[in-house]
Amino acid sequence: MKSNNPIFSRSEEFSRPTTNQYGNQTYAGGAPTVGFGEPGSAYPAGSPTHTTGQGAGLMTIDSVVQKTAIALGVVMLTAAATWIMTPDIANLEAAGTLYAALTIGGLGAFALSMVNSFKRVISPPLVLLFCVFEGVALGAFSKVIDASFSTADSGNLVVQAVLGTFAAFAGTLAAYKVFDIKVGNKFRMFVIAAVFGMVGLSIMELILGMFSSSLGLFGFGALGMVFALVGLVLGVFMLILDFDFVEQGIANQLPEAESWRAAFAITVALVWIYTNLLRLLAMFNSD
């Protein structure tokens, strides 16, 4: 299977162009995978456990869920710590502290997301470090939005965004399974191209903002709303790609270490959905 997703395509394990005489796919440049009960297998047919030649376990739904839970747990704990440890927006100095945390966390998360996306051998420590920086950025961003837009009438926008994000995850997963969604190459290429396009526009917006000449993509006007809506839809599309790659990876008997790559990709998609959903909620509740 050849992936157009940069997060997964850097893994050699996701490319297995040939099969052995038993119909099992082989690793790129490696030996064929030996199935249950086949000659040379260390486990007879019906054995409940199967490992790779290096002794590592295989990627499963359970391993992906566990690694994703760890990654999201780090993000949420770091975000909560950032919220608690940073001052409320009461003056320019307090606001400066929050925006500094948002900037440092955002830049660190972006740099590590690029490293993790294009790294051939996934590194769990780098994935968790990304989660730490992402949590700092999300904690600061959420606190700014809450202080600026949450009211007694609107309720807590951060809680609404969190619930909406998990609802989007559950809804997308249900649609993926119930409607048996098949991901084609054209869809993959479109989503990845659109994501990189949005990243490029975001970088351009940040640079223009340094010279007080932004386009308003991060603002709360009409253009900002369109940008957030497109980002929200792309986040859902990213989840569909992630579900497909996890399903294909399990079918291809990838090593358990690749569960961290899947967890990283799912975390990125959920963060993408959360930030855009929180922005939209803020816009709907702005005067």
Rank of each mutant, 00 (worst) to 15 (best):
L232Q: 06
L254R: 01
V136T: 07
F36N: 06
I122K: 02
A101M: 14
P39I: 03
L173G: 15
S286F: 08
Q253A: 10
L239T: 07
I70R: 00
D180S: 07
L173T: 01
I84H: 15
Q66G: 05
G108D: 08
A94K: 00
M1I: 03
G29P: 03
G171F: 05
A168L: 08
L102M: 12
D242V: 05
A45E: 14
A56Q: 14
P6C: 05
A80C: 01
R16Q: 15
G200E: 06
F169A: 08
E247L: 07
N116P: 06
G171P: 13
G57I: 00
G46K: 04
S259Q: 02
N252Y: 04
W272I: 00
G57R: 06
P48Q: 09
M114N: 11
K2L: 09
T275N: 10
M76K: 00
P39Y: 03
A80T: 10
T33S: 05
I70L: 15
L239K: 02
P48L: 02
F8P: 10
W272D: 14
L173A: 12
A71D: 07
M1P: 11
S202C: 05
G184K: 00
V74P: 13
F169Q: 01
R120H: 11
V178D: 12
F118T: 09
M225Q: 12
M198Q: 09
E13K: 05
R120D: 15
A269M: 06
M85E: 06
I273K: 07
Y176R: 03
V132N: 05
I84G: 03
S113Q: 04
A194I: 00
N5A: 11
G30N: 10
V127H: 05
K182R: 13
G23N: 11
A175V: 13
R279E: 10
V246I: 14
T19F: 08
G108W: 03
Y274F: 15
G197T: 11
A79K: 01
W83D: 14
T68E: 05
V65K: 02
N91I: 02
I266W: 06
L241H: 12
G139S: 04
A109S: 14
M204Y: 15
A263C: 04
L239W: 08
A175C: 09
L254Q: 09
S202H: 03
F264H: 09
G55K: 07
F36K: 04
V183Q: 05
L217E: 04
N156I: 07
S154V: 01
D244G: 08
V191P: 12
P39H: 01
F211H: 08
F141C: 02
P6W: 09
A31T: 10
A111V: 14
L72P: 07
A147K: 01
A170H: 04
V226W: 13
K143D: 13
A170C: 06
R279M: 14
